[in-house]
Write a protein that binds this DNA or RNA. Structure first.
Lengths: 223, 223
DNA sequence: TAGAAAATATGAGATATCTCCTATTTTGAG
DNA sequence: CTCAAAATAGGAGATATCTCATATTTTCTA
């Protein structure tokens, strides 16, 4: 992890305005943190000292269960917050946050800014929107996971993450995200291949029947 | 559904202050709605005109999936909001809300109050807290549903809803809530009875081995 | 650059959960 | 009070998903 200093910091802050998020300036004590892929931004179980705002990159929220299973709760993208739960609640089980690409965040020391932020309608409005989307997403994922087999959820995930007709996510990550065993994920991927929805080439899968996948994934949706 | 008028309204509003929620008064256009058990407070798919604040009672959030399955997403209790998603987002698939006991809500016409509320730090802070809890809850339910079998989740649910050592929820509701089939719920309940965790008496189940259920439910928790 | 660790792959058997069916009991509206 | 609808109950077989075991390939690190 690198903390930008001096001109590197100044330049970065100038290029990435966050005026739209706050009524009063927060630059005084704000830091700029850069994390490399796989770095832990927050350790599971350890309260963070900062409220983060992701400017660049992508991260993952993990929780480890007592039975050893690991869940990838969700992805965090640019323009989203990290640590807002700890800002709002004194008691909270902190989830682990891991960068999945190089990730640059603004880091606001909660100590300094908590009081100010909790009075700032502009900030609270942003945070409210963010949390409402998060709550809705989780509710959808929850009900979908119970109402539909992996087949549908995987089709949806493939379409969401495929890049130029090519799907190439790591199986291990996908298992944690969709909450199924490695074995079963492979099994359904093989089915997709046998049905010619996908064509496997090394570690990549080429989408061959977009429509078939689309109709599997549409079943999840209440438009 | 009954809308309180005149003195009935005045009395109710006086007895249930909501000063702590708003910086400026909202009583002018506020209504008081009373719903009976099983009334629909909001129809699935139909945008509500009000932001509701539940003063008394308990309600259920439902969504119907394309495959016909119904999910009970969550319960709503006193001092919680309904319709906040529609307040925040112009495009949103509205879930159905059904009263599960007699429920009395304050109903704020969004049309009149949206702008004012979105500027009100006090209100936004409350809403933020509410949504953050909601998001956390959903995330936990989601990961738990994928990481643990019904046995653990049902044990937890029984302990949460049992009244004086007696569990007597409707099976149909529980199926929708825990996302399992009626058949399977009965199956696991029978197991609990055979293991003497519960003792069945008509439609009620008496908790006989509190500790066994407790340890099943503890497995879900990361303290 | 060798060896360890992580990721991929696949088989085989177990089990959690589902679907479909049928029967009985309870509840609620007229 | 009566009848239909809802809720409860349980059998039987299907299937979605899991666990465990083992082998190969890729990636990372000392």
């Amino acid at each position: 992890m690198e903390i930008y200093k001096a001109s590197k910091k100044r330049l970065f802050v100038e290029r990435h305005s966050i005026e739209h998020l706050f009524s009063a300036p927060v630059e005084a004590y704000m830091e700029v943190h850069e994390y490399q892929r796989d770095d832990w931004i927050i350790q599971e179980g350890t309260r963070p000292d900062f409220l983060y705002y992701v400017v660049e990159g992508k991260a993952k929220i993990y929780i480890t269960h007592q039975n050893g299973k690991v869940s990838l709760i969700n992805f965090i993208n640019a323009n989203e917050f990290i640590g807002e739960m700890e800002l709002l609640h004194d008691v909270y089980y902190t989830k682990g946050i891991q960068a999945s690409t190089k990730t640059i965040c603004f880091a606001l020391p909660m100590h300094y800014y908590r009081r100010q932020l909790m009075e700032d309608a502009k900030f609270l409005r942003e945070l409210t929107r963010f949390l409402s989307v998060k709550a809705t997403q989780m509710a959808m994922k929850y009900t979908q996971s119970l109402a539909f087999p992996l087949e549908n959820r995987l089709a949806d995930f493939i379409l969401q993450t495929a890049d130029n007709g090519v799907y190439k996510e790591k199986h291990v990550t996908v298992c944690d995200y969709l909450g199924v065993s490695y074995r079963h994920l492979l099994h359904v991927l093989t089915q997709f291949t046998e049905k010619q929805y996908l064509q496997k080439e090394g570690r990549k899968y080429h989408i061959k029947q977009y429509d078939s996948l689309k109709s599997l994934s549409q079943i999840l949706r209440n438009k």
